[in-house]
């Protein structure tokens, strides 16, 4: 696919973000996205299918997302395509989580 992932030779993508003493994950959610994806490798999706799912992110979105945001996109896409989880289920759970967070703040 002639997608946004095929970056070799592209100009103007900025300076290389070199970080000294970088942690393995920058936040808990990055670690969780990584581990949840890893836990789907082989048992649910061939790794190449996950790579391809990342690439299917629309170009504008791909180029403005962080690495683990792209992994999250791929995970959600494949879970949905393979009828493991529907988009509606995710939005429903998210609404419940957001609600419980708001009500706990109000306490």
């Amino acid at each position: 696919m002639n997608g946004p992932h095929d970056l070799g030779g592209m100009h103007n993508l900025g300076a290389i973000p070199i970080e000294v003493n970088e942690p393995v994950f920058h936040s808990e959610w990055e670690a969780k996205v990584f581990a949840m994806s890893f836990a789907t490798f082989k048992n649910y999706f061939p790794v190449d299918e996950t790579r391809h799912a990342c690439e299917r992110m629309p170009p504008g979105q791909y180029l403005s997302s962080s690495y683990y945001e792209r992994w999250l996109y791929a995970l959600e896409l494949l879970l949905n395509e393979h009828h493991l989880v529907t988009k509606e289920e995710i939005e429903e759970w998210l609404a419940q989580f957001a609600h419980s967070q708001t009500s706990s703040k109000a306490d």
């Binding site: 969780k32 945001e69 959600e76 989580f97």
Partner: peptide
């Protein structure tokens, strides 16, 4: 926002 979304997905899975 992302952290919350990931928590929700983890709990659902």
């Amino acid at each position: 926002d992302i952290a919350l979304r990931v928590k929700a997905i983890e709990s659902l899975l």
